[in-house]
Design a protein around this nucleic acid. Structure first.
Lengths: 146, 146
DNA sequence: TATTGTTATACTCTATAACTATA
DNA sequence: TATAGTTATAGAGTATAACAATA
């Protein structure tokens, strides 16, 4: 066994895969009860943290910018989001949640019964540990230069 | 503040949402390098754990059974999966990964650089802790009766 | 009767390429 | 010249409804 064997990475990736499938399925079903697709629900989830330009939204969701036009069109038609021109760059449009959009994404999360039951099984200490680990693995700031 | 305030659930759901977006984006990009869509990649990921009937596959992926026909059709046409008749129930078809399909899903996971870098930042103890927590939250056996 | 897998249909998602307006 | 957002297009994903074969 030379150097660091990196033991457990394959198992961890397998576990993350299973976790994603479980979470994503729960999320998709919860979004459907609000009449939304999973992509529309994910978009609301990103916007829950604050307004975002169309381009930044596409980057965050890892999809092409041209997709966002249609997704935001449908969400806007239902009154869940708004497009506002940027005050500093006339090319840019900022997207933000309406009060109804905020209510909707909160309702979706409240209906994720499988995930909520899983979290329920954790004590306060384990919940804090999970939060810390997720933050370190997935929410790290983007590398300064790469 | 009556009873258990359930403090932190909203924050945990927010963190899980951000983690899903990060993981799913990484997974989608890695699948694309193999010429596969995210849904095709997820299907391979589920089958990595073992063969599955069409119906069970749809249930696991939380999509309608009619979707699986098209997804498996395309994966089969590329030689990544196989359909086999069940020996015990002539209505059922079991889907399994070919050697090429197994190689492909492993290659996709090996190309998830953002996620792998995040896991890399964890020590052995933290990796074990994360694995345990994910298992408790997402991989619990389905409730016996609900 | 109920269940498995499939087909037909309509809508949504998705990437590619080309375009307009602005920087 | 480069970037933000949109449009057009074609292929893939998605749920609904209906169907044949089997249990």
């Amino acid at each position: 066994m030379p150097e660091t064997p990196r033991t457990g990475t394959a198992q961890l990736m397998e576990l993350l895969s299973a976790s994603l499938v479980a979470y994503y399925g729960d999320f998709t079903a919860a979004s459907a009860t609000e009449g939304l697709t999973a992509s529309q629900g994910r978009t609301l989830g990103v916007l829950r943290r604050g307004p975002s330009a169309m381009r930044a939204l596409a980057t965050t969701l890892a999809c092409d910018a041209s997709n966002m036009t249609g997704i935001i069109d449908r969400l806007e038609k239902r009154g869940l989001v708004l497009r506002e021109p940027s005050p500093t760059d006339r090319r840019v449009k900022n997207v933000l949640l309406t009060a109804d959009g905020e209510r909707t994404i909160d309702a979706i999360r409240a209906r994720m019964h499988t995930t909520l039951a899983g979290l329920d099984a954790l004590g306060d200490e384990d919940r804090a540990a999970l939060a810390g680990l997720l933050e370190r693995v997935f929410v790290r700031p983007p590398a300064a230069d790469d």
